[in-house]
Design a protein around this nucleic acid. Structure first.
Length: 255
DNA sequence: ATGGTCGTCCCACGA
């Protein structure tokens, strides 16, 4: 089965892209971030016409996460213990025999800013939540826009990005603590080298010049490790008209 | 020239 994550930067604008990509690639599970739609405006009918069931936690203008799946998502959870947060960044659900946690991690703006402190606090609380999810659901996938490039291989120009937001040591350490729960970055089970990115700034022709970061991740629990078959980032939708600044990341799991 | 683009919503702000 195929599991994917995609920051669409407004589902209102990108619904045609999601429809086209789902027809082309046929993922079984697709986690979306930055839908920027209130729940009442979520395109349920279009998603169902495409052959998917969905769950969503939306917000006007900012944030918003959703899960599309061939099988109906169950046990949906959008708020976690100890994090009283109006920002819609978390959606956990059970799909078949998998637990799936979709995250839109806080961007953090700049190292040392209030938003950066919020990012680190948010990650600490989400990590505690994931420890409990993993205990209850050993077959766990955690995926989404992490807004952290795990290491310098994931950065087009590590010197320019050194200790900048998305690449700083505190953020990378926070991600390592999350991984230490017993999760692996599935992409790195299959690809070792540098130069594979999932986000490119809209400015400066960054995509054309492959000046990107790999910040969209699919983490798999140890119990799933023997089932990992392939991982990739599909740059194709980034070449389409009016694209999201992110490309979808994919993981193939043995059925 | 110390920016450069988008999306949202009306004026900047967030990414």
């Amino acid at each position: 089965m195929k599991i994917a994550t995609w920051n669409v930067n407004s589902l209102g604008v990108r619904l045609p892209h999601v429809e086209q990509w789902c027809r082309d690639v046929r993922p079984d599970v697709l986690a979306l971030q930055e839908t920027k739609l209130e729940d009442g405006r979520f395109p349920v009918a279009a998603v169902e016409a495409l052959g998917y069931r969905c769950a969503f936690s939306g917000q006007k203008t900012y944030n918003g996460v959703a899960l599309l799946a061939r099988q109906a998502p169950r046990e949906v959870l959008t708020d976690i213990p100890g994090l009283d947060d109006a920002q819609r960044r978390i959606l956990a659900a059970t799909v078949g025999d998998l637990r799936v946690v979709n995250l839109y991690v806080v961007n953090g703006q700049a190292v040392g800013s209030d938003k950066f402190a919020y990012k680190l606090d948010w990650l600490r609380k989400v990590t505690a939540f994931l420890a409990e999810e993993l205990r209850r659901h050993p077959r766990l996938i955690v995926l989404g826009d992490f807004n952290i490039a795990p290491d310098d291989r994931d950065v087009h120009d590590p010197e320019t990005w050194r200790e900048q937001v998305l690449c700083s040591t505190p953020e990378r350490e926070a991600l390592k603590r999350l991984l230490a729960l017993g999760l692996v970055d599935s992409f790195r089970q299959f690809v070792d080298g540098a130069g594979h990115y999932s986000w490119w700034d809209y400015r400066q022709g960054a995509f054309r010049r492959n000046m990107g970061l790999r910040i969209d991740l699919i983490l798999a629990s140890e119990a799933l490790r023997p089932s990992l078959k392939a991982a990739a980032i599909d740059r194709t939708p980034r070449t389409w008209e009016r694209p999201s600044d992110h490309a979808p990341a994919l993981l193939e799991l043995a059925a």
